[in-house]
Amino acid sequence: MMIALLLLFASLASAKTVLVVTADASDFILAAGGSISAMTAGGDRAILVRVTNDDKDSWRLPPEETASRTKAEVEQAAKILGISEVHSLGYRADELGGVSPTEIRDRILFYIRLFKPDVLFIPNPYTEYDEVLDRFYTGLAAEEARQAAALPNFQLAFAKTGLEPHVTRELYYYAQPFDPRRREAESTATFTPQPKVVGIGSTIDRKLRAAQALKTINFSMAMRIRQRLEDTGRKLPLLETVDDAAVNKLVEINVRKLAEIAAKGSPYKQAEEFMYAGPEFQVPQKLR
């Protein structure tokens, strides 16, 4: 009993706070859901900041209803991954190019100072050939927010409300495998993020259930695939009837294949791949 209590205290003492920034509802699940789930299962506290409202991603539903349904579904998905809070910034999807980058940065910075995370997950803005630019704009803003959150001369008003500067020690850049050169190390300099592969064998089922919780987006994906095939005189046997079972199967194929792609060349069967900057990756003093 005593040992169990000691172990509990020890794990609580080492528990980290993880802040996950996502552009659209599915991004963080597909690229990082397994790793986040492993952290929460180990006792870490995770919080999600969702930048857009996903109002475009449905099949024949108006934007308002799309946004409303997806909000409920992403909260359900986050819960499955063990994320305790979801904060939605509410920007209209696919329109971040018209929003002030400083505004997005400062809203993410607010959450960094509020929750003082040890770990930050952000979309990788340097990944190439990812056509969804919401992820690019969010990644840039979040990367800058992490930097600015640590500097006392940014957002002086925040300090008046107790939101003091904060350094986030670990940074994970996540992306789906669109970039053919994503495995190339950017640089050997100690302060440059490096490729990191995380095995997700123990959490992939939870990741899958989280991905399947996004029913509106998944149904839209299935219908759009069917439409693209129909436009070119083809069909997919799985999608002859687009019901929950067919959509969930499609999502399962997607999630498991993504895990297999990420694991290629690693000791794992299922994985997620990141660019990672840990506590040891600091800009040397002489270069600051």
């Binding site: 050939y129 789906q176 495998p177 669109f178 695939i225 069909k235 997919l236 499609l250 294949k257 792609i261």
Partner: peptide
């Protein structure tokens, strides 16, 4: 060119769709 193929936007489904899509 750098060509973006038909299912490159869905890297997890690309192989499955290429293998299983058939003429109507």
């Amino acid at each position: 060119f750098y060509a973006i193929g038909e299912w490159d936007d869905l890297p997890g489904l690309k192989e499955y769709l290429q293998t299983n899509a058939r003429p109507k």
